[in-house]
Simulated assay, not measured.
Amino acid sequence: MREAMFIKKNAAKWKEYQHSETDNPDETAERFITLIDDLSYAKTFYPKSKVTRWINGIAAGIYQSIYKNKKEKYTRIFTFWKFELPLLFKRYHRILLFTFLLEVFIVCIGWWGSATNDEFMRNALPPGYVDMTEENIAKGDPFGVYKDDNMFTTFVRIAMNNTFVALLMVIGGVALGIWTLISVWQNDIMLGAFQYMFFKNNLGWQSILVIWIHGTLEILSFIIAATAGLIITQSILFPGTYSRMLSFKRGIKDAMKIMIVLVPLFILASFLETYVTHLMSQSFDKEKNFGLPIWAGVLILAASLSFLVWYFVILPIRLHKKGYYLQSDGIIGRLKQQNA
């Protein structure tokens, strides 16, 4: 973008920030973050220009109402997990909501298609899966697919496969989100058909207890992976005041930070699927009288869901309301508390 166009596009905003003060801490933070972004762009493309000094002066003025971070005893890793990652998600909550609603909609399509056409369900699921499950149901062991003699090998295989699929979803954002959306479609159509298959055989609530013990972490982690992919897509299609390449680099960086949180989530989900889901499935095996208690399964499912909602939705909002903000360089700042 030429300097004249950059100034014309943003001059009115800068003048307002310079001459019109605000007592609202959220608006002050928003102004400061916006100016930092504009300043970064100006320093990159017009380092010796007067407009760069102008923006810097406005930002410095606003900075007087914001205090610098005190040196914390927390390590960088602790700060990343407690502040940086949740605040990063706050920045992309709209994309997260869009992805969640899209995936719910596609799951409903998979359910509806399976309910209206048996061939749809068979085509959506892996070859022979429906027949195998129906045989297990007839034998009184409906969730026999989750039983495996070599549990550790299964645990490693599931964790690696899920992480790889999630990584492809993230990288798919480079292709304008096409591959990301294709992966979302395939996985969610399969999920809808898979869940309907058990409800069709009057095993719906049992399947929720068995499948969603690990599925809560696993499926919602895939939603987060798809969100990361669409963040990259947004950085390409809507660069804002940045050059497209600079915006793309920022999108990649943010998406890879999000990918970091998926690794432990997939490891935990794989552990639950291999060891805990196996025990839960035995509770519905007519030939056996032992397994994981129902209340324990409900507790694990509820704890998993509560953690995900708290960490990715509630905590980012709470940090934002307390005045924390994430600068473009990853530094955490906090507004001074206003006296009532």
Rank of each mutant, 00 (worst) to 15 (best):
M5K: 13
F155T: 04
W179C: 11
K249V: 07
L96A: 14
A60H: 10
K68H: 08
I300T: 03
W14L: 15
K139R: 14
K321V: 08
K200E: 14
V145F: 06
L220K: 02
P127Q: 10
K249A: 07
F222E: 02
S270D: 01
K336D: 10
R53Y: 12
Q337D: 13
E21Q: 12
K200P: 00
Q327S: 14
F222G: 06
L102F: 07
H19V: 07
D329F: 12
V51M: 12
L268V: 13
K9F: 00
I109N: 11
L191M: 09
Y129C: 02
V165T: 12
I252P: 03
A226L: 01
N117H: 11
L272D: 01
N202G: 08
M197T: 04
I208G: 05
M121Y: 05
T75W: 00
T99D: 05
S283Q: 04
L246S: 14
V184R: 02
D118N: 12
F271Q: 03
G297Y: 02
M190R: 05
L335G: 07
D329C: 12
N150M: 11
L176V: 12
L97K: 13
E135G: 05
M197P: 01
F89Q: 10
F105Q: 02
I331R: 14
W212T: 11
N56A: 15
T22A: 08
I182P: 01
V170G: 02
F6L: 05
T241N: 12
A4L: 09
P25V: 04
G330F: 07
N339T: 15
T227E: 02
A166R: 05
I77T: 07
A296W: 01
K139S: 14
L319R: 10
N123A: 09
T274L: 05
M5E: 13
Y41H: 11
S49P: 09
E3S: 11
T52N: 09
A4R: 13
F198A: 05
H19G: 02
Q338D: 06
N10T: 13
I267Q: 00
D118E: 15
I294G: 00
G110W: 07
L88Q: 04
I178R: 08
P127R: 07
T154A: 11
L101G: 09
L101K: 08
M169I: 04
D38T: 07
